[in-house]
C-alpha cells in the first residue's frame, strides 16, 4: 500500500513539474510513476503491489466481458418467445472472509451471466445465489468460485 501512495505522490509530482493538473496529465504521471517504480524494484525488493495492480486490471476486463455476455444472454432469453431457463437457488460456500471481499464478490456475481446474489448466511460463510440456467449445480458453484471469487481475492489479498 505504501508503494501505491508513493505512486500517487509521483503522479502529483509529475503534475507539479509539468504545471498541468488535468485528469489526463495526472493519469499520465501515474503511469510514468508506476513504470519508474517497476524499474527500481531491485532497490527495495519485490512487492505484491505490481501483481495486485495487474490482477485488478484483469478483474476489470473480465468483469466487463462478463457483463456484456450476461446482457446478451438475458436479451436473448427475453426476445425469444419461449423461456428456456431452469432457475433455482444454490448455496455457495465462500472463501472470502472480510466484509469488503464478500461485498465485492456478491456485487460482481449479480452482474455476471445468469446469477444474482440473494442472501448471505448469518456466519457470512454461505452465499445463496439465484441462477437462471442450471444444468449442474456444482458447475455453477465452480463458475462462481473460480471465476469471480478467485479473481477478487487475487486483488484484495
Amino acid at each position: 500500500m505504501t508503494l501505491f501512495m508513493l505512486n500517487l505522490m509521483l503522479a502529483l509530482g509529475w503534475a507539479v513539474v509539468t504545471g498541468g493538473y488535468s485528469l489526463g496529465n495526472l493519469i499520465f504521471g501515474f503511469v510514468i510513476g508506476y513504470f519508474a517504480l517497476w524499474v527500481s524494484r531491485p532497490l527495495y525488493g519485490s512487492s505484491a503491489y505490481f501483481g495486485r495492480l495487474v490482477a485488478g486490471i484483469r478483474l476489470a476486463t473480465f468483469f466487463l466481458y462478463d457483463l456484456v455476455m450476461s446482457s446478451i444472454q438475458v436479451v436473448w432469453d427475453v426476445v425469444t418467445p419461449s423461456h428456456k431457463s431452469r432457475p433455482g437457488i444454490i448455496a455457495v460456500k465462500l472463501d472470502a472472509k472480510t466484509d469488503l471481499e464478500i461485498m465485492l464478490t456478491a456485487n460482481l456475481i449479480s452482474l455476471t451471466p445468469g446469477t444474482l446474489s440473494l442472501e448471505l448466511s448469518d456466519d457470512k460463510s454461505i452465499l445463496y445465489v439465484h441462477a437462471m440456467f442450471i444444468d449442474d449445480p456444482d458447475d455453477i458453484r465452480r463458475q462462481v468460485k473460480e471465476g469471480m471469487e478467485r479473481r477478487v481475492l487475487e486483488v484484495l489479498r
Partner: peptide
Amino acid sequence: RNIMDELR
C-alpha cells in the same frame, strides 16, 4: 419450473 431451492 424452478428446479431447486437450497435457501428454503
